[in-house]
Design a protein around this nucleic acid. Structure first.
Lengths: 253, 253
DNA sequence: CGTCTATTTGAGCCCCGTCAAAGGCGGTGG
DNA sequence: CCACCGCCTTTGACGGGGCTCAAATAGACG
C-alpha cells in the first residue's frame, strides 16, 4: 500500500480499500477528484444547513465535522461524525433540500465535487462505484447501530461504544498512532452524540476513566484497554462490515 | 392514477410515484417483479437474522414487518417498520452479512427478487432507478429522524412522532381510510421502537389518549387531531421529502 | 371456558436532567 | 510576562422522568 497520506484523497483511498482492492487506474481516477474546488470552513461553523438545496458532493480532506439535526427549542442531536476520507452525502443532491445540517468541529477542508463528476467516476470505474456503494451501506449500518446505542444502552455503554467506533475508524485511515489519536471533540459534542446532558456526560466520562479504559487529556485520546472497552459497551464489529474475506470485488488487473 | 391496490406491486408504485412520475412502461416493468417468488412469513417470525448472508431483495406485498437489532442480553431496538410497498434492503446483498434482523409483525407476504433482476430493472428503466434511489435516501433520512427522536425527544413526543409518521406513510400507499388505519403494533413493539420500557410506554400512551390526540382500540388507530399531534411531537415533514414541486424527474412520454 | 398474550396499575428507586457555580486552561493583548 | 477573557470541564444539590418488580385485569383464540 503506497503511503498516500500526504495526498488530499489518500484517506479516501485507504477508506475504500477496506472494502475493495482498487487497481492503479481506479486510484488515479480517485486522485483526479483533487481538481474539484477545495473549500475551507472555520471551526464550529456550519457547512450546510437543513433546508438548503444540496448541490455538491463533499469529501472531507482534513479536520473533523459532524452531521446533526436540531429542534426548534434548541435541542440538538449529532447523528454522525466525518473524518478525512469521508463523503458527506454522496447522493443527496437528488433531493430538494437537506434534512439535516453539517457543521465543522475543527477547521475543515473539503473538496466540493460536482455531481456529474461523481457520476462519470462511478460509470467509468465501476469498482470505485461498488466501493462507494459499500461505503454508503456501511454508513447506513452505522446509523442503525447508533439507534441501538441510544435506544438501549446506558450512558456508560454508549460512551464506550462511541470511543471504540471512533478509534477503529480513525485507525483505518491512518489517523491513530498506536492506541492514541488526536481527538478534537468536546464533552458537549460527546453529549450531543450520545443523547445525554453535558453534565451527565462528564460524570460518565469520569467513570470510564476510573475503570482505566481510556485516557483523554489535551485533545488526545488513548485507548488503554480496547478489549475491556468493547466488552463493557457490548461492541460488535459486524456493523462496520470490515469482513474482507469474501473479496469478490477485488481488482484483478 | 389507476387503482392498482389489488396488484402485488400496487403499493410500491404508489410509493414511488410520491417522488417521480412514472411512465406506463416504467409501471409495467415494475409489474413484472410479480414473477419473482412470492414468500410467506408467519406473524412474529424472523424473516432474516443478523449474521446471515443476504441473497435477495425483499419487497413487502402484505402485512407489517420491522427491522431490529438486539444485544446479547436481550435488549432489542426496532429501527424501522415495513409496510406493503417497502423494500427491505435494496442493496445489502453486496455485503457479506446482515447487520440487523427483519421480523414479521403480522403474517407477511413478500417477493424475493434476485439481485440481477433489480439490476436489470434499474438499468433498463432509469427513472425507476432514480425513484428507488430516492426511496433509499428517504429511508436514511427517516433513520436520522429516529435518532433525533430517541436521542432528544421525551417519551410523549417520541410516541406522538411515531404515530404521525406511520399515519402519513400508510396514507401515502392507500392504507388509511380517512384518519383511521389498521394498526397491528403492540405496546411492546411501540416500546421497542421508541426506546422506552413497555410499562412506561403504556403510561405514555394513556397520556396521548387523555390529550384527545388519538384513539387506539382493537388494532385500529385513529388520529383525532393531526395538527395538535404534530405540534406536540415537534413534527417536521421535511425529512420525508415529499416535496414534489421540483419534479425534475417526471416522465415525459 | 381455559389458556396465553397484551394491557393496565401500583410502589419504590435510580439514572439522568436541571440549575447554579466554581475551577481549569488556552489564547490574546497590553 | 502577566492579566484578562472565554470556553471547557468539574462539582454539588435536588428533582423528575423513566425503570424495575410484581401482580391484577382484559382480550384473543381455540
Amino acid at each position: 500500500m503506497p503511503d498516500s497520506n500526504l495526498s488530499l484523497v489518500g484517506n479516501l483511498i485507504l477508506n475504500l480499500e477496506r472494502y475493495v482492492r482498487l487497481s492503479a487506474d481506479d486510484r488515479s481516477a480517485l486522485e483526479n477528484l483533487k481538481s474539484s474546488p477545495l473549500c475551507e470552513a472555520k471551526a464550529r461553523s456550519d457547512i450546510v444547513r437543513e433546508g438548503q438545496k444540496p448541490t455538491v458532493v463533499r469529501l472531507v480532506t482534513s479536520g473533523w465535522a459532524c452531521r446533526y439535526k436540531d429542534l426548534p427549542d434548541g435541542r440538538r442531536q449529532i447523528v454522525g461524525f466525518f473524518i478525512p476520507g469521508d463523503f458527506c452525502d454522496l447522493n443527496v443532491y437528488i433531493l430538494q433540500q437537506m434534512d439535516h445540517s453539517i457543521g465543522a468541529i475543527t477547521p475543515v477542508t473539503y473538496l466540493a465535487i460536482p455531481p456529474d463528476v461523481m457520476e462519470k467516476l462511478t460509470t467509468t470505474r465501476p469498482r470505485v462505484g461498488q466501493a462507494l456503494l459499500w461505503h454508503q451501506l456501511v454508513e447506513s449500518s452505522v446509523q442503525r447501530e447508533w439507534l441501538l446505542n441510544i435506544g438501549q444502552r446506558s450512558a456508560l455503554e454508549r460512551l464506550g461504544h462511541l470511543f471504540v467506533e471512533l478509534y477503529l475508524r480513525c485507525r483505518a485511515v491512518g489517523m491513530a498512532r498506536g492506541m492514541t489519536l488526536d481527538f478534537p471533540l468536546t464533552q458537549n459534542d460527546l453529549a450531543e452524540a450520545t443523547g445525554v446532558t453535558p453534565v451527565h456526560l462528564n460524570r460518565t466520562l469520569q467513570e470510564v476513566r476510573r475503570q482505566g479504559l481510556i485516557e483523554l487529556r489535551g485533545k488526545k485520546l488513548t485507548i488503554l484497554d480496547l478489549e475491556q472497552l468493547k466488552q463493557m459497551s457490548l461492541f460488535n464489529e459486524n456493523y462496520l462490515h470490515l469482513d474482507h474475506e469474501g473479496r469478490q470485488l477485488d481488482a484483478n488487473d
